[in-house]
Amino acid sequence: MGKVIVVTSGKGGVGKTTSTAALGAALAQNGDKVVVVDFDVGLRNLDLVMGAERRVVYDLVNVIQGDAKLTQALIRDKRVETLYLLAASQTRDKDNLTPEGVEKVITALKAAFDWVICDSPAGIERGATLAMRHADVAIVVTNPEVSSVRDSDRIIGLLDSKTLKAENGEQIEKHLLLTRYDAARAERGDMLKVDDVLEILSIPLLGIIPESTDVLRASNVGAPVTLADGRSAPAMAYFDATRRLRGETLPITIPGEKRGLFGKIFGRKAA
């Protein structure tokens, strides 16, 4: 039986879709069977980030409404053969996501995959609560910035009350993924410190992903950053996060703090 992960944040544009694709690909690169599911009905983007936008035949709503079988809607990645995508519908609205339909789909996916990763839409409405509903693990994506931290706190509250696990009196496993971390801004003291965010939200840290043009390049060419350039800083941070997700304990490195003279000079200038 596979594990269900929700990648969520409350606030929009913090890196949920980027992280879903990167973590999903990283898990699959290790041989695990992974499906990434786009819950952002009406504004799908995971297909673009995964580079599968030309191959979407059926979507989540088609499956829920019985227009297509689940196996027909799953799109297999062209690079990693254990990686699959279930796209969101672009043309229907989110009312087509019914709790019963979502439950059926997630139950079937759990039986067939090692990891089911749900990319949540922003907000705290129906789409977001349905995406987290069946999760065993939640990855709370946060930027080191006040409104993002506040929204993450709100989402943590929902995870502890609106998920199936919470309703059954169990604890949902929660991890913080700090993304778009800008080492140069941190050095100038203009960004919330990692420790500050951790203290405020008090959930364990899964990783710190640096702000990087490698992420932009990867989405331009339609590849998760862990596939586009496995040696880039954000990819390596995602690989580390993946290992922690598997239960390994690794020391956390704060981006930029290990830079040599070269990095320091250029880091300052680039800022």
Binding site: R54, R55, V56, V57, Y58, K69, L70, T71, Q72
Partner: peptide, 9 residues
């Protein structure tokens, strides 16, 4: 779905 597969590009 085992017998009918639909692919699109």
């Amino acid at each position: 779905s085992e017998k009918v597969s639909v692919k699109l590009e």
